[in-house]
Simulated assay, not measured.
Amino acid sequence: MADNRTMAQMLQAPIEGYEDAIVVPPINANNFELKQPLINLVQSNKFTGRQDPHNHLRFFNKVTSTFRHPEVPNTSVKLLLFPFSLDGEARDWLDKEPPRSILTWDDLVSKFINQFFPPSKTTYLRNKITNFFQEPNETFNEAWERFKGLLRQCPHHGFSELHQLDTFYNSLNSNDQDALDSAAGGNFLDKMPQEGLAIIESKSKVRYSRSRANDSRVSTDAPLSNSSSSNNSLICTK
């Protein structure tokens, strides 16, 4: 078909290609509106590309879970709000994604994580978890908190709860292994995973409590323990 536009018309900037990367499914609901307070809350913790993307998603999911509408899927709300939660480098990344290339919330999460938590970082943290060991002069509680911290940094590590407990147990010095065996009434690894986790958490609390008590009795010139209290959270198994 012949192009009947004039040269001036042909030289004009195109009007296509300006659609957003995120495609939000049509919302056919009465009285649907995203309230400004919800948008403000999302914007209160913007991700710039320098923070932990997993923590950002956790915060974002908590915020958006407060919105409920019987006719609107929560995933649609997330797709609408997510751009408001980005700034700087992260916003630039989203703006550069091809138009209409993100069709679902899972698509968005996958692209976001792969952009700001690349596979190389996953491999690095998985190796740190696999090769974890209790450092010299590190208390049981300190080792446990450090181990859980590595797991939280990489929630998609893929290690089963059994693998995690086995790795941690075998990373300990002989005294702490013996203490776990004693608390288990035999071989620690003969326990069910949930029982083993409960034993570790209990031992961690007791050791921390004793450490705090000892700290209150030592002189001000003595070094203080660097132990931090357990957050009682289960090991990540995602």
Rank of each mutant, 00 (worst) to 15 (best):
residue 29 A to W: 06
residue 232 N to S: 14
residue 222 A to P: 01
residue 108 L to C: 08
residue 151 L to V: 08
residue 171 S to A: 14
residue 109 V to W: 07
residue 212 R to F: 06
residue 237 T to I: 12
residue 63 V to P: 00
residue 85 S to Q: 00
residue 181 D to Y: 01
residue 231 N to L: 09
residue 144 W to H: 07
residue 17 G to F: 06
residue 25 P to A: 12
residue 234 L to Q: 11
residue 86 L to I: 06
residue 185 G to W: 10
residue 64 T to S: 10
residue 219 S to A: 08
residue 123 T to I: 15
residue 177 Q to L: 10
residue 199 I to P: 00
residue 180 L to E: 02
residue 200 I to F: 07
residue 181 D to L: 02
residue 24 V to T: 03
residue 164 Q to T: 08
residue 2 A to H: 08
residue 229 S to L: 02
residue 87 D to P: 00
residue 225 S to G: 04
residue 227 S to D: 15
residue 208 Y to F: 15
residue 109 V to R: 15
residue 159 F to T: 01
residue 40 N to S: 14
residue 213 A to P: 00
residue 139 T to D: 06
residue 33 E to H: 12
residue 178 D to A: 13
residue 140 F to K: 01
residue 229 S to G: 08
residue 225 S to R: 06
residue 62 K to G: 05
residue 231 N to K: 12
residue 164 Q to H: 05
residue 218 V to E: 04
residue 21 A to P: 01
residue 118 P to G: 08
residue 198 A to Q: 11
residue 172 L to F: 03
residue 189 L to G: 00
residue 12 Q to C: 05
residue 125 L to A: 01
residue 119 P to D: 12
residue 31 N to Y: 14
residue 12 Q to S: 10
residue 73 P to S: 07
residue 159 F to A: 02
residue 135 E to I: 06
residue 11 L to F: 06
residue 222 A to L: 11
residue 168 F to K: 03
residue 118 P to S: 10
residue 88 G to Y: 10
residue 93 W to D: 08
residue 8 A to H: 08
residue 119 P to Y: 03
residue 107 D to Q: 05
residue 105 W to Y: 08
residue 194 Q to C: 04
residue 174 S to R: 14
residue 94 L to Y: 09
residue 17 G to M: 04
residue 93 W to P: 06
residue 101 S to Q: 11
residue 184 A to P: 02
residue 151 L to N: 02
residue 10 M to Q: 14
residue 104 T to H: 02
residue 230 S to D: 14
residue 21 A to S: 11
residue 153 Q to H: 13
residue 203 K to D: 01
residue 10 M to I: 10
residue 13 A to N: 05
residue 12 Q to Y: 02
residue 219 S to Q: 07
residue 45 N to C: 11
residue 45 N to A: 10
residue 150 L to P: 02
residue 235 I to N: 07
residue 89 E to M: 08
residue 14 P to S: 15
residue 208 Y to L: 03
residue 217 R to C: 11
residue 101 S to P: 13
residue 101 S to L: 10
residue 198 A to P: 04
residue 151 L to T: 05
residue 117 F to N: 02
residue 145 E to P: 01
residue 70 P to F: 05
residue 144 W to I: 03
residue 109 V to S: 03
residue 131 N to L: 07
residue 106 D to L: 14
residue 110 S to E: 11
residue 74 N to Y: 00
residue 109 V to T: 05
residue 113 I to L: 15
residue 128 K to T: 04
residue 11 L to N: 08
residue 82 F to D: 00
residue 61 N to W: 07
residue 229 S to V: 07
residue 164 Q to P: 00
residue 140 F to I: 04
residue 166 D to G: 04
residue 187 N to F: 05
residue 52 D to F: 03
residue 76 S to G: 07
residue 50 R to N: 12
residue 178 D to L: 13
residue 69 H to E: 03
residue 144 W to P: 01
residue 225 S to N: 11
residue 28 N to T: 13
residue 68 R to N: 13
residue 192 M to L: 08
residue 24 V to K: 01
residue 35 K to C: 06
